[in-house]
């Protein structure tokens, strides 16, 4: 589904990605993990050419992005969804309009736009919030809107750049659940960049460990499932007292 062939990327003096080759298979949830500065986000952003590689080839869904002209590249990007750590919603548009814009950009048939937006919002469980503005939503809800927006045009691939890193554990579990559901029910290939081991272990089938801009190893794993989070005050108290005992 996604093929990177000897891709390199530098920022002024710093070489962020050093001749990386990587294949991501159709239908998998592929994790990318590594220390900060290892080049995780850069690697992900190379997959839709948000960063233009200095060398190497990027192929997504059979199209060689690195040899497309700008018009065809824009076309190709319409079937590659992307979500971000900070959601990147348009704050002056309602939830509904934020999803609608993806359809407008993709010249989705006008008559079907309304139904499609509602369908996507339904999928992420936010239909009742469609007239709200992002400022009125919680972090988890904002990320759901971003997911609905990314899904609107039926992408083959969903790129997730630290999708849960600014969310609390409870919301993280919710969002991971949504991503897993997208993969299972819609068959969308998902790539997740995260620095949180728990996130990666819970839903990924295959994980690439990145170090200093190079692939250290790619590991096949069995996802251990999304852990339900105990949110009761009693749980917090227990955890705090446990810690106390450890140090005593």
């Amino acid at each position: 589904m996604i093929k990177l062939h000897q891709v390199s990327k530098s920022f002024s003096q710093f070489q962020a990605i050093k001749s990386v080759s990587l294949t991501i298979n159709k239908g998998e949830i592929h994790g990318i993990i590594g220390a900060s500065g290892a080049g995780k986000s850069t690697l992900l952003r190379l997959m839709n050419l948000l960063e233009i590689p200095d060398e190497g080839e990027v192929e997504v869904n059979g199209a060689k992005l690195t040899s497309l002209n700008s018009k065809s590249l824009r076309q190709a990007r319409k079937s590659i969804g992307m979500i971000f750590q900070h959601f990147n919603l348009v704050a002056n548009k309602t939830v509904y309009d934020n999803v609608l814009i993806a359809l407008e950009l993709a010249s989705y048939p006008k008559a079907e736009q309304r139904d499609r937006v509602e369908e996507c919002l339904q999928f992420v469980g936010l239909k009742q919030l469609k007239d709200k503005y992002p400022a009125q939503l919680s972090g988890g809800q904002k990320q759901r809107v971003a997911i609905a927006r990314a899904l609107a045009n039926n992408p083959q691939v969903l790129l997730c750049d630290e999708p849960t890193s600014s969310l609390d554990p409870n919301t993280t579990a919710e969002i991971l659940g949504v991503l897993e559901n997208i993969n299972k029910t819609l068959g969308v290939t998902i790539v997740i960049v995260s620095h949180e081991m728990e996130v990666i272990k819970s839903i990924c089938n295959r994980v690439t460990v990145l170090a200093d801009g190079e692939v250290y190893e790619t590991v096949l794993i069995e996802p251990n499932g999304i852990k339900a989070v105990d949110n009761s005050p009693n749980y917090f108290v227990e955890q705090l007292k446990d810690g106390e005992r450890d140090h005593a």
């Binding site: 990007r77 319409k78 992307m82 959601f87 704050a91 993709a106």
Partner: peptide, 17 residues
Amino acid sequence: PKGVMEAAISMGASIRE
């Protein structure tokens, strides 16, 4: 925010869009 423009580009928006 720069991220808003990035999101736009990732959705295949042209400069005009």
